[in-house]
Design a protein around this nucleic acid. Structure first.
Lengths: 217, 217
DNA sequence: TTACATACCAAGCGCTTGCTTGGTATGGTT
DNA sequence: AACCATACCAAGCAAGCGCTTGGTATGTAA
């Protein structure tokens, strides 16, 4: 789903993951009409909000008539849902890879923090913001579907945090730590600007890990 | 503005602060038509979102005709803005009082964390959630107005955090710590349920402070 | 008694919204 | 050559939206 990514400068293994997800039909090919629409939709939904984005806005963004949208998606809400579902699928795969590549439990957690910050502030940032701020625009049925995927994603985090708890490296409650991390990391999208200002994503990751007060390995 | 609070079980000094703000005309009297409307609006905006809440919904919630709303507010957006402005005013006053009542710098920070958690998860919770999630529904002009008030509120936090930094108790960057705290604390509204489940607000506050890894006083 | 302000109602206007309909151009398959 | 699925356009419908208008009941003050 490069549809939700800006092209180029994507880590190589992320590109590989993306290709395999496209092959399995789990995310849309960014070159397809559907993929391009999802990318534009993510941007518009983040900038203006779902409700204030009209189907005419969406159609204009990809250069078609508003009625033609409904050849690709049954309803406007289906577009929002697709943005969310494909984003979670991609990020779950990326996070799992990042975690598996790390050695110690401590490094696994850091890899997750780093990867989530990249998702939020990098190329999938628009779609991630939609996931956070447009949640209530989904019908309850769609919320339930997305929640199922989200549970898988969250299970990754809990695996890492529970392991650290058993190591004795983490004193606080893993569930609460994850909740706090989720809020803190999501919120970075409202203030963190890597381009201007000295703090790099790596530096930000270090600050977050330091703030958790893990005992030394 | 008890309009944005459920009545009763409000700390005494908070009641005093509220009364003085009403006297200064900085927040609406909850007994007034305007005050009751703002309370209902906060609830509806949080539950359904601003865009999906119609002026007919708002009018029905206080038992009048939709057109009659515009006798009290010029536009629908003015209602949203009033909810936000009055909430920030009340919370700034409450936070300042909590901070002044605390002794050490460490206790001042804890008082702020505790007070913000109370604002988010207590009686002003609906309005605080609106402040977080409906921000983009404000026009740019209104955003600027609210931002001015928000700066005052944030300055309180920075005073406390900078003092701890100078004490040497805080190692991380105060600005970043505040950003992370803002996200983590706001996010509690999506998962923290004090009524069912053992964790009290006091316990949650302790977990947050512990997570900051302050050196002992 | 008159005068005026406040708080509301009943009705509805004009516009925008998501979505539908009937049709056409294109390209691949048999 | 005949067929059909895909991807679109042009036009517009029905519903819902924020807000306006003209009027009425109530209370207060001169």
């Amino acid at each position: 789903m490069r549809s939700l990514l800006k092209p180029l400068d994507m880590p190589v293994n992320q590109e590989k993951i993306l290709q395999s997800l496209i092959a399995d039909d789990l995310v849309s090919d960014p070159e397809s009409a559907r993929g391009r629409l999802l990318r534009e939709a993510a941007g518009l939904f983040r900038d203006k909000g779902y409700e204030r984005t009209t189907v005419r806005d969406l159609a204009a963004a990809v250069g078609i008539q508003s009625g033609s949208l409904f050849h690709h998606f049954r309803t406007k809400e289906d577009i929002l849902k697709a943005v969310m579902v494909e984003t979670i699928r991609l990020n779950t795969a990326v996070m799992r890879a990042a975690m598996n590549a790390a050695g110690s439990n401590r490094e696994k957690l850091k890899a997750l923090v780093r990867a989530e910050l990249e998702s939020i502030n990098g190329q999938t940032g628009e779609a991630m913001a939609v996931l956070v701020f447009e949640w209530r625009s989904l019908s309850e049925a769609s919320q339930a579907d997305v929640l199922t995927l989200r549970d898988i994603y969250e299970a990754l985090w809990m695996t890492a945090l529970n392991a650290l708890k058993e190591d004795g490296a983490l004193t606080a409650d893993p569930f609460i730590v994850r909740r706090m991390l989720a809020g803190a990391l999501s919120w970075t999208v409202t203030w963190y600007r890597p381009e201007r200002g000295g703090l790099t994503l790596e530096g930000l990751t270090d600050q977050v890990i330091a703030m958790l007060g893990l005992t030394q390995p």
